[in-house]
Design a binder for these strands. Structure first.
Lengths: 226, 226
DNA sequence: GTAAGCAAGATTGTTGAACAATCTTGGCGT
DNA sequence: ACGCCAAGATTGTTCAACAATCTTGCTTAC
């Protein structure tokens, strides 16, 4: 049995409203944390035994995760943890480059939203100070999620969440994880300041340049651009 | 058996790669066409017999459709065709008001895209000339889908498709279906002309006003605004 | 007469087993 | 080394069963 699956069965086992949804959540977490790296095959028999659920219920969870593109289903071959490639990275940034600046430009900023973003920026600075790449990555994702949430739309929040989950898969697929985020800590801070000053258009334009650069850097690192 | 289900079993029955996906497609179609109106209960036993599939496979289809918000699942109560309310309408327009103008503003316009839009506008005019409300509604949805596709993003296309499907449910839920779209035919045409002229910012701003008005009109009609 | 409470029936949630279809693996022969 | 074929393993789908929950209709008390 895969070591990453050990102990899943022990975690809170009270009767769950929807067992299928619970199984999906467990797998989503394990995948997001990198315990189940991209490309890993998720065997029905192994997993159903490890999780203590029937194959049917597990397949329901697979259907949920496949709908979220967390997992790829190949007919008669099985289910694999999604392994995003260069095209997926480009698609991720197409989405981000559209909804993030749009939320900055047209979203309304509720009281406290900017303060919350400042807290996130401080968290990123603290992580940088102690050299925590993971901490910076988390803070970065948190900030960009907060930007999209200016839209006030749950659907866009969900789309952004899906996109960021795919970003985590991209990072997990990389052999070495250099510090992409260090460069962006202060750029994020400047962005928040611009929004606070009401310079929406400038912030949106800057954010688009920012995302262009980030995409380019990432594509170079995964070898899609020489 | 519900009359809307008659004949489903007869439609092309060759072995399907994924029966669950096929069942989901059948139901999605029936719901989108209004044969299964919002609020309809989808009984597992009835449907599994009508479609000639097992309850397990049907439940897999339900999981897919629930993930698309086409259907609402209430634990131990069953599955119902989604019945969007005023809040859902507001959410729909939050999304549209963000991604449509953003695609107009920042998308790149591939050769032929504008001509394709002109064709759609002509289709809308023809539908209006012969008084076909359904024809105008279809053309309208097609045009706005084309606007979002300027983004070049499959994810945003999918989100727009989901949103428009929800819009159809809203219309199906209305007792009377007045002509919302007649007013917008020429406004759509003007929008395409602005894009053709390179007046992106003006087009985006106009589109936002347009969507504001449409949301307001719809909310009034469903009685959410006095 | 109405409302609360309860029992019987129906529906959903989950499991286990079974079988067909397809894929993978290993050995075989050329 | 290469292709081919049979055996085993895995997935796709169905069926049957049972527990948990909901619905319905009846009874009973006030």
């Amino acid at each position: 049995m895969n070591a990453a699956l050990q102990g899943i069965a022990d975690a809170g086992h009270a009767t769950h409203a929807h067992t299928g949804a619970w199984v999906a959540a467990q797998l989503r977490q394990r995948i997001s944390d990198g315990l189940l790296p991209p490309g890993t095959k998720l065997s029905e028999q192994t997993l159903s035994e490890a999780l203590g659920v029937s194959r049917n219920t597990l397949r329901e969870a697979f259907t949920v995760l496949a709908g979220e593109s967390v997992v790829q289903r190949i007919p008669n071959r099985g289910v694999f943890v999604a392994a995003p490639g260069a095209d997926d990275v480009r698609e991720i940034y197409r989405v981000r480059r559209l909804i993030e600046p749009a939320a900055v430009l047209w979203g309304d900023v509720p009281a406290g939203a900017l303060d919350a973003m400042d807290v996130i920026v401080d968290k990123a600075r603290a992580a940088r100070a102690e050299g925590s790449v993971a901490g910076m990555a988390d803070a970065n994702q948190e900030l960009h999620k907060a930007l999209v949430s200016l839209s006030g739309s749950a659907s866009l929040d969900a789309l952004m969440e899906k996109v960021l989950a795919e970003m985590r898969l991209v990072f997990h697929a990389m052999a070495t994880t250099p510090d992409f985020h260090g460069h962006y800590v202060e750029r994020n801070a400047a962005l928040v300041a611009q929004i606070r000053n009401g310079q929406r258009e400038e912030a949106a334009a800057e954010l688009r340049r920012y995302l262009d650069g980030a995409e380019h850097e990432l594509l170079i690192h995964i070898g899609a651009i020489p």
